[in-house]
Design a binder for these strands. Structure first.
Lengths: 113, 113
DNA sequence: CCTCTTTACCTTGCATAGCAAGATACCATG
DNA sequence: CATGGTATCTTGCTATGCAAGGTAAAGAGG
């Protein structure tokens, strides 16, 4: 398994929630949005299990709607519980990413001496 | 499993490598250093498997040395391969943490309007 | 000498989540 | 009717955090 896959673990849920918070999206669209943001190669085998899990936890709800050109789409939106948890994840991310960046990049100032 | 546990996945190796890069450390010491940096509650059940895995991959090497007050300590240092991979992980972290922070915190400017 | 605490190492087993691979099906184009 | 893009979901593998438990050395206190 790649380094990248492991790095993604756990935070992908937060990213999905944050995107859904802005606007209703469907799964296929979501993988494209993630790519636009710079998270490349998030396959559908990853996205759909995430969406099903989040729905099972009652953080998002999905409703099928017909598309004008193609198969039906399942649009997701955040629940109140989902919003609360997104805020939690934002705080967790802050609490972790700051020290991690410090540890990993801790010798940048030393390099410039 | 907690949100935090999942967030840690994958990046913990990089943190361990980065700390070892600065100076030789032993496992027990490592968990304390991580705490000082702000990564609390990294138990020994987490640390030792990481160290064994990294040693198996030939990214670090450990040597037992007697302690003046207590049981022997196993000090770890980076191999050349370990340094290369640490650099890789640093780049991966950069490539992931930037877009993730953008996605998660994307509406901060909107909140301040 | 015995017990307790601290330090220090390691193992077992579980739950979780990314993801390759594959299945199914709708619609439009040629 | 075959092809390609759109769209959903499932199966099985693997990696890894971590709770829980085990072992052992050194020093302190009784």
């Amino acid at each position: 398994m790649s380094v990248r896959s492991q790095l993604l673990k756990g935070i992908l849920d937060g990213c999905v929630l944050a995107i859904i918070e802005k606007e209703e999206v469907y799964g296929y669209e979501l993988s494209q949005k993630l790519q636009q943001y710079g998270l490349r190669d998030i396959s559908e085998g990853t996205i759909y299990p995430v969406l099903l899990r989040l729905q099972k936890s009652n953080w998002i709800i999905g409703t099928m709607r017909p598309s004008e050109s193609g198969p039906n789409r399942k649009y997701y939106s955040l629940t109140a519980e989902g919003k609360e948890n997104l805020e939690l994840i934002r705080k967790e991310w802050e609490l972790l990413s700051v020290p991690i960046t410090t540890i990993l990049g801790g010798n940048k100032s030393e390099r410039n001496r």
